[in-house]
Computed example of a mutant assay.
Amino acid sequence: MTEMRAGQELLLIGIPGLLGTRTLLESREEELCRRFSRRYLREERRKLERLPLLSFREDRIMACGLLLHREDRRAVTLYEKDLIAKENAGEIFPGELGDLIPGYAKDYGLSALISVEDGGVLDAIWRLCEGKKGGRSFGCRFSYGKIPFLSLSIELCELFSQNPFRLPSGNCCLMALERGYALSEKLGQCGVRSSVIGSLSEDRKRLRTDGTAPSFLTKGEVPNPLSGR
């Protein structure tokens, strides 16, 4: 990997908050059934189960459960039209595509890779900017609006007064790299969601840029939003 430097792009790959979203669906089922039909909740669970499973290493990004074209096993892009009709007709199906983007670290200038875990996206941003132990740390500028949550995650967080940016994730990764937008476009062509949410900066300030006033990310205590703390 290359060395981290100011100006590198922060790329979030996968959908943040999935683990927390699943937990809320399971643990608050009775409350949800009083607000939504069971059919709707079953459909939302089915959508979650059908999302691609991603894994990340420095030499490759791997995935299974992607939608593929049956004829040539080519990945279905995020921009494909008439997905439901094509799936009903048997033209596309969920399948495995093991080495999704081999050699991406060198091709796109990867400098750091952090799994988004229990502390959610904000914790991952902090940990990535801190860098390796004993190494240099960085600041960043990032946007809440560019973090690609599912609408279901936002809806459940609003309903149960949870912070989506602290939701446990899994199956999601934050990277610092030279060509984040290029890799994001490539991922979209493979049917994987991603978004450049910001960039590294020289100072150590971690600043949210899309609020009505400057908002700084501080270390503090990273709570588990589902623990009741």
Rank of each mutant, 00 (worst) to 15 (best):
A75H: 01
R34E: 09
R60H: 11
P16A: 10
R38Q: 13
A124T: 02
R5K: 13
R179D: 06
G90R: 01
R38F: 05
R28K: 14
D72K: 05
T77C: 04
P94R: 04
C190F: 13
E3Q: 11
L100N: 00
P16K: 04
L32R: 00
A63G: 14
L78A: 01
V196F: 11
K146M: 13
R73Q: 12
S199P: 00
F93N: 00
P16F: 05
S227C: 05
L10S: 04
K186M: 15
L83I: 14
R74S: 12
P16V: 03
R60Y: 09
V196E: 10
S195R: 04
S169L: 01
Y181F: 12
A85L: 11
P52L: 04
R204C: 14
A112Q: 07
T23N: 11
G120K: 04
G119D: 03
G131H: 07
L110V: 09
T209Y: 02
V222G: 07
R206C: 09
G135T: 09
S195H: 06
L156M: 07
G228A: 13
L122A: 11
D118Q: 12
E71T: 09
L150Q: 05
Y79E: 08
L54F: 10
E87Q: 06
A63T: 09
L12V: 07
L41I: 03
C140K: 04
L32W: 03
R204Q: 15
C190N: 14
I197V: 14
E130N: 11
L66R: 03
R46G: 11
F160H: 00
L177V: 01
E185N: 13
R60N: 13
Y104G: 01
G170D: 01
Y144V: 03
F149I: 03
S137F: 08
R57C: 09
D203P: 10
S111E: 01
L83N: 02
A63Y: 00
G191A: 07
R206S: 13
R166F: 09
R5G: 01
S194D: 12
H69M: 12
L122Y: 01
A85Q: 08
Q8G: 08
T212Y: 06
G170C: 03
K219W: 07
C190L: 13
P52K: 06
L48H: 06
E3S: 10
S143P: 03
G220Q: 10
P148D: 07
G14L: 00
S195C: 14
T23L: 14
L150G: 01
V121C: 01
L19A: 15
R5W: 04
I84K: 10
I61H: 01
G134V: 08
D123N: 12
A75K: 00
S143H: 07
P164V: 08
E43A: 09
G211C: 09
R34G: 08
I197W: 11
E31C: 07
P223W: 06
E87G: 02
E31L: 11
K132A: 12
G65M: 11
R141S: 07
L10Q: 02
D123V: 02
R73C: 06
A89R: 02
Y79W: 09
S27I: 01
S199E: 15
S153M: 05
A85S: 09
P223F: 06
R208L: 05
L67C: 04
A89H: 02
T77L: 06
S153P: 10
E26N: 14
